[in-house]
Each structure stands twice: as C-alpha cells, then as structure tokens.
Design a binder for these strands. Structure first.
Lengths: 415, 415
DNA sequence: TCGCTTAACTCACGGTCTGAATGAAGTCGC
DNA sequence: GCGACTTCATTCAGACCGTGAGTTAAGCGA
C-alpha cells in the first residue's frame, strides 16, 4: 500500500535531474527555456541542474536557434557518448550481444549459436558465452569499460526480480536459474535482467510503434504467443513478474490442447506451430470440440524451418484455399484474443509483433481488426489503434539495452 | 512517459505528510518512533509533521505503551472525527447515500428507489435525489457541512475522468452524462465520481478480502459480470477508464450470444441472467456451437426476483441434478475466466464478489478453484489466492466513500 | 553605436530534512 | 524514597533545494 516516496531534499534534486534528463532524451534537442515550461521547473533550477549535467558530460549543447531579435536559445541534448549500453539477447537458438552508445546507435555486435534448451538445462555455457560476448563487444568497439552504464539481458521465461534475480524457464519443475549471481562471477558491470519480450516491448514503446503512448500492449506471436503490457509508461509485471501470459488465456473452453497442458489456449490457435499443424493436417474436424493435440510435438524441426514453412503458408494464401482458410481462422481467434486485451486493459494501442505476428499481420491485418471489432466492446475498441511493430521481429538486444537506459534515466544519470 | 514529479521543497513536505497520514490510517495506532522506521523519515521530521497533524486535529493521541525501562511511547491514530465522508451508491434500482466519519463508521443513511434505466435515460431526477440525500444525511448526522471532506459517487457504467467528468452508460450511442456539472448546481462539496464496481473494489482492498495485497482483481458477478483491477495498490483504469471489462472477454469463440452484441462472452456463461436462462431452458444443446440468445431479454422481472430465482437454484443444487449441472457449468467457465485474469494480471489475490458471485462461490468455490487450476499456468496460479469478498454484496456506498478518503490521504489531509 | 528583446545566470529568501544534543517520562536497583 | 539508567520526543544548527526577481549575456535593427 505505502511506497516509500521521495523523502529528503536531496532526492528532490535527483528526481528533477531525472525528469530533465528524460525530457532531453525523448524530446530531442531542446532549449533550457522549453525545458522549464515542459517540466514546470523554474528557470533557476533548470540552469542549475543543466549545469551539473553539462559538467558530468551527460548532456551537450547542440547548436542554437535564433529568435527574432533576442538572444538565441542554445539547444541541449543527451550526449550520445555520455556512456555505453550493452544489450544481450539470450534466445532459444543464439546468444547475441550488442553495444550501443546512449543514443542507441549500434557500435559493436557479437553472436554465438546455442543448442536448444540451453539456459534452462545447463546455464553455465550460456553464462560463458554472455561473458565472452561482453568482452568481445567492449574490445571491438574500443569502449572504456568504465563507460559502460550497464548490461541488459533479455531471456526467455519469467524473471523474478527479488533479492536474487531468478529466471524460471518455461519447463515447470526445473530449478530457477540465478542468472545474476552466475554472471557476477565474470563481470562487475551493472546487470539488468528481464524477460526478452518485456524488453522488446519497451523498445517498441520508446522507439517503435508505441512512441507517444502511455498504455499499450505489445502482442508477440512466434512459435509461442506472449504479450508485453505497458501501463502508465512502465512495463506491467504483476505480483511475481509473470503477467502478460496472453498465449494461455482461454478462447475456447474445451478446445484444442495446448503445450501448457490446458485446453483452448489462444496459443493453440494462433501460435505459429499451431497454425502449421492445422495446415498440415487438412481441414478435417475444423469445428469445435475435438481436442486435437496442439503444437507441442515439434514435428517441424528447427526455428528456421518453422519460419520458412509459416512464411510459405502466408505467401500461398493468395492462391491456395487451404492456406487462406487457415490464416482466416487464425485471424478470427487472434481477434478474440486482442479483444480480450482491449476489454481488460483498455490500452491506447495494440502492437502486433513477433516474427509470425508480423507475417500474419502483414497479410490479414484488416481481418484481424474486423474480428477484434466483433468481439471487443465498442467504446474501448474505437479508442484503440491496432498496428504492427516497427522494430522488426528481433529487437530483443535493443530492448535489453533499454533496461540499463531506463535505470540511467530514472536515477538522473547516477553512475 | 514523463509525469511531472514532485518539484518544490514544499511538495516534499506534502508527500511526507501524506505518507505519514496513510501509515497512521492503515497501520492503526502507532507511535512516532515506529512511524520513523516505517517511513524512513528521521525522528525530527516525524515530530514536526505529526505536530502539524495534531494541530490540524486530523490525528490524535491514543494511549501509550510502556517499554521496559524507558519513556513510554505514545500511540497516534487518525482522529475519526477529523472529518466526514459521504458515499453515494447510484444503482439500477436505488440511490443510497451514507455518511461516515474518517474511520468509516456509518453515521447516517438515506435511500430512495429508482425506476430502472434512470441515470442514463433521464439524469435530472437522479441528480435531484442525490442532492436531497446529501442534505438529508448531513442533517440527520448533525455534521458540520464544512467538515465534510468530500462526496464519492459510485455509478454504473464507465466514468471518464477528463476535464469534465462524463458517465457513459452501458447503452452505447446515448450521450454521456456530465454528472459532476449537474451535481455542481446543487452542492459545493468536493465531488469524486467513479465506477461503482471500482469503488467497491477499493473498499475490499482497504477493509475487506484485499487487505495487505498490492495486486488483486475483484471479480464481481451480478446480473452482469465485471472486475475491478488493482495494481500496485491503486485502481487500474487504462487509457480511457474502461479497463476491467472482464465480462466481455471471450471464453468461447463462436459461442453463445451476449447482450453486448458479441458471442462467447464470459458474461453469457456465468452472469446470473445467463445462468437463469440456462436453467429454465433445460438441458438441450448443452454442447458448443449453438449460439443461443443470451441474457439480454430480461424475461425475469426485477432485480429482486432475479436474485431470489438465482438463490433458489443455488439452494436446489444439493438435491436437483439440473441445478447442479448448471452451476457446475458456470463454475467451469468461471474458472476459465479467472484463469485469464491470473495469466494476464498475475495478481496476488482474486476476490470473488457481487451478489451472484457470493452465492455461487459459497456453494462451488472448490469447483471454481479446480477449474481455474486446469486453465491457468501453474506458477502464477500457485501464487494466487482465490477467495470471497468480505464486505457483502453491496458495499458500493462504502466504496464510494473511499474515493474522497483516498484523495484526503494522498494530499496529506489538505482541505 | 544605441536601444530593444530574449535567454541564461545569480542570489537572497523561505522552506525542508537530517542528526546530534537536549529535555521528558518512566523503570529498576538499592 | 532516591538516583542511575533507558527510551521516547523535541529542539536546533547545518546543509540543501527551488523560486523568482534582478542581473548579465547575446544577438537584432535602426
């Protein structure tokens, strides 16, 4: 109930410094004058704090703009070289490490393939890869190690942010992986670990289709289905960080079996694996009731094979009735799932992403919108935009880099 | 993205005053000493602020507790007589006005019946009733009008908190009612208008089954179905205040028709009207597919008749197979709906309320839990308690009174 | 060059929290 | 019963902070 607020007069300064820094970061180059009106701070305070930020080299001047007759206002911006950020994408098939400057321009990249099921089954090699990746990108970019603000790590599975950061893999029953502790053995850099989808969602909110929105849901469809929920500008985690399990909401009581063990999950109808299964098995039993055995089997080989097969179906939808039929069915169920998000969260935007989501959306987005409209309540539906993600299917590393960046901005650039 | 934080040093004091007041309100009688450790404030500040609060008569001393050998610590609590709160319940069939002291002890009550569809179709008489109700409870309780901190009004429908507070009734297409402006013609008291379910949810969180939880969903089942979502201790509204429309999430694509116009809504399976319809129509077509025409008809007469009929079914479930069957089906669908809440929001608790929800829960709660378990993901399900509301089926007026109270606590008791 | 205009800085003032010192209020041992 | 001890509560100097008016800086036009 009671969060311990700002207390001392010093926290006040930290908070104002943070607001100013955030404003500078997201509102682009801006003058001191505008900063005052934007934040409500007095000119004196703005001058004062900006002076500090300039001294710390976190902010720099960026030209000036003449103003008919008076002293020109000098523009300020966050100095891109004020620090470096590292984003780590721990996927099912690879570990990717990218190093950015503060403006999130990529300066170096490193990648290593992974045998499936890696992090959960045997964390040590994954940890090893991450650590070598960190050294690699720092070396390659020539960055000062001390200038690295932090390392964001996006992982699959639920990340519990407690005293000790624990990663729970999708396979229930296995022990959670104390990833932070394991990484600590090899690096002193500040670590920020979170779910990869959440991280990617934050990237879309800051730099992609979510710009300007405060409440949005990023619906991610790949082989599985998940969602990153953003409320009031921050990721929504719930009580134990496992919020947003959209893929396992029920769209059909007594429906198809899902790999999670339940039946009728959205994922069993719109997940890429489910759609592929559906396509390959032909049209028989298209109706309800018959609980087929959903996508778990993995009869479809590696991730790349799956993506190619899915793309083929989407490509064939123009000419082949069966492909069209399958996609339309997926769109209908997806509409129901999106309607649930709208009815429950009332977001400003729904952003459809993930590799399969983008393929599907590129082809049948109007269909999805129509299905959504038929299930959602009118008012909230009318107030929600439904669009596609703009950062591509694989923005996890970028998203991971936003984790230390968020901390950096929230603390006003404390090192 | 950027909320304008605390800025000046004076806001700091306001914030600390608020934290202290909240702590005193919810942690019961507490000493200055504990207050310090609880909030992290220094002893000096606590003394200072508490002094102010005592001077403003918002806080009073409440005995002392000896402490082996030293000066006894004097306990403090919020003074119940520090102000009065009024809660207004605008229901479908009545307007009820209640006046409370700060400890939410009821001091006076007033009620007036309403012809159905009142507020939306013709707001003026409802407004008139509210205003006379206000005068009535103030007169009856003998309260100083100036001592009334505020009036909370809980209404059905979506309440848009913009420049002007607008109430959107469930009937789409009708004009929104500018309730605040209408009430302003007859009172100068501070007004706080919100959805009745949200208000009731806040009451459960503060004084009922939600005590101690920060994230919870209060699932309300009456004739219709809704939910009040609380995240991080505050009601979740979404972008345009219409979040929590749980009743119209899809549990059966292509399923039964709902009065909202869509098909397969949860409400069409677990709403009281839907259950009654189901019971009366017999067992035919129990399977999927056949889109029967759901609960809209209202062939069931008034609210009281409906409640009696529903209670009869619940009562008969022990002896009559058909009644049991209908309730079990409702429990199964309800489990799916609750599982969706758990998967999406990951709350600490699900609180089942509403008159039908309480009847249903009292009878088949284990069934509901089992159904939920079968649909929800294991981890979040294991971390969620599912229980019944504790404030009864009709805590809207109490909940409405928490609206001005919340403002009172948040501002540190500013008048 | 001289006014005019606007941006940015400076600084006295009122306000806040902290933390140590002081005062207040009991208890315990003798 | 009296003094020493313990603990709670208040007071106060010191360090900060934001405000807002006044001052300086930096251009423009005549």
């Amino acid at each position: 109930m009671g969060q311990m607020n700002r207390r001392t007069v010093r926290d006040l300064r930290r908070g104002n410094r943070s607001t100013l820094l955030r404003q500078l970061y997201f509102q682009g180059p801006v003058s001191r004058q505008e900063l005052g009106t934007l934040t409500g701070l007095s000119s004196g305070s703005v001058s004062n704090v900006v002076g500090d930020l300039l001294a710390d080299e976190l902010v720099e001047e960026a030209g000036s703009v003449e103003s008919d007759g008076g002293r020109p206002r000098t523009l300020l911006r966050v100095a891109p070289g004020g620090g470096h950020l590292i984003g780590v994408d721990v996927g099912e098939t690879h570990v990717r490490v990218e190093l950015f400057d503060l403006a999130l321009t990529e300066l170096a990249r490193w990648e290593h393939p992974l045998t499936p099921g890696g992090l959960e089954r045997d964390p040590e090699p994954v940890v090893g890869h991450i650590l070598t990746g960190l050294d690699a990108v720092i070396a390659k970019s020539g960055a000062e190690p001390g200038a690295v603000i932090g390392v964001g790590v996006g992982v699959p599975g639920v990340v519990e942010q407690g005293d000790e950061v624990l990663v729970h893999g999708p396979t229930a029953g296995r022990d959670a992986v104390p990833l932070e502790r394991l990484l600590r053995t090899g690096t002193d850099l500040p670590l920020f670990i979170d779910n990869g989808a959440t991280a990617q969602g934050q990237a879309e909110m800051w730099f992609g289709a979510g710009r300007g929105a405060d409440n949005a849901v990023i619906a991610l469809i790949g082989s599985g289905v998940g969602a990153a929920i953003v409320t009031a500008g921050v990721p929504y985690r719930g009580a134990t960080s496992s919020a947003g399990e959209w893929g396992h909401t029920v769209v059909q009581v007594g429906g198809r079996a899902c790999r999670c063990g339940a039946v009728g999950c959205l994922e069993a109808y719109v997940g890429a694996q489910a759609v592929l299964d559906r396509y390959e098995r032909g049209a028989r039993g298209a109706g309800e009731g018959g609980a087929g055995d959903g996508g778990a089997g993995g009869a479809d080989g590696s991730g790349e094979d799956q993506q190619a097969a899915f793309a083929a179906i989407v490509g064939a939808a123009g000419s082949e009735a069966r492909a069209r039929e399958v996609l339309e069915e997926a769109a209908a169920y997806l509409g129901a799932g999106i309607a649930d998000l709208i009815n429950l969260f009332n977001p400003e935007r729904i952003i459809l992403g993930g590799w399969a989501g983008l393929l599907l959306g590129g082809r049948v987005l109007p269909r999805i919108r129509a299905a959504t409209a038929s299930y959602a309540l009118r008012r909230p539906y009318a107030q929600t935009e439904i669009g596609l993600a703009e950062l591509g299917p694989d923005a996890v590393a970028l998203g991971a880099a936003t984790l230390p960046l968020a901390h950096f901005l929230a603390t006003g650039g404390a090192r």
